[in-house]
Design a protein around this nucleic acid. Structure first.
Ligand SMILES: [Mn+2]
Ligand SMILES: [Mn+2]
Ligand SMILES: [Zn+2]
Ligand SMILES: [Zn+2]
Lengths: 144, 144
DNA sequence: ATTGAAATTGATAAACTGTCTCAAAATTAT
DNA sequence: ATAATTTTGAGACAGTTTATCAATTTCAAT
């Protein structure tokens, strides 16, 4: 465990240092759980961690996942009814294909689309900071 | 008022007819208000209509705007914290540029992007039903 | 190692948005 | 007009996330 997720841990520590925040047992725990999962919700992580740490509060998980967003490790996504926290620390930015049949999520990047987005923005005098592209449909399996 | 929004009124009536729903004073009122605004929230409309119709219930507005979505006149968007109802009756499908400085929203269409989306989906075995593309950034005015 | 200021936590209350309930009212077909 | 059916409005309720605050933990300075 000391060998895994070192880079992300460093990134977190750097953010903490810059904002006079502290490194706690909970933050380490939640980071480790976060990096082990994709597109996880705060509640899902709460129940998952409750098995080994029954007293970890839900509020702490929300706070910490939001902290990861501030630190640039995570990004909040609004697919279903609950916010999903997406790991963007090792992968860079990416967008999503979402199957409305089985909830499967496929990540993709397409720099041609990204380029055209810039073009559209420029044409309207905008400077893009972020964007969100989600394609909803049916995967192969669910189409049959 | 009899001359305006006739087409949308017809579309609504057609949907009502097909689903044994009734045409009420509230539905006419809310349709008219809806077509007068862009990207409006249920609450904003509630307060707006309260001036002339203090007893129009918030639930009725939510129900009716959702009805418009079913009828294909409206589309729910999730920009801010509240759902915005977007008029798609006369315009067709479109995506959005959103200024995080002044909340300005610019609509755009780009069939090249749409085509590339299809391509990405196909490559992953998906059949797209809908999609959502939102570009967040600063407009000309807010950049200075 | 101890101290103490500052940040964090966990439990829970509260906020917020949207839907559900249900009796009363309105609509539409007969 | 009558009656069957749908709709409405008021408020209760539900789901998700944030705020509150006393107790605990961290960490920098002794
Ligand atoms: Mn992702
Ligand atoms: Mn729009
Ligand atoms: Zn599927
Ligand atoms: Zn602006």
């Amino acid at each position: 465990m000391a060998t895994k997720h070192v880079k992300e841990m460093e990134a977190l520590k750097e953010h903490l240092g810059k904002h006079q925040l502290k490194l706690t047992r909970q933050r380490e725990l939640i980071l480790s759980a976060f990096l082990r999962q994709e597109h996880i919700t705060a509640e899902a992580m709460y129940h998952q961690l409750a098995k080994s740490d029954p007293h970890l509060g839900l509020a702490t998980i929300y706070r910490t996942l939001n902290l990861f967003c501030d630190a640039g490790l995570a990004q909040a996504r609004h697919f279903g009814s609950q916010t999903k926290y997406d790991n963007v620390s090792h992968k860079g930015h990416h967008d999503h294909l979402i199957c409305t049949g089985c909830e499967k999520i496929v990540e993709f990047e397409n720099e041609e689309i990204e380029r055209l987005q810039e073009e559209v923005a420029t044409r309207h005098g905008f400077t893009i900071k972020t964007h969100r592209l989600e394609l909803y449909g049916l995967c192969t399996r669910c189409r049959d």
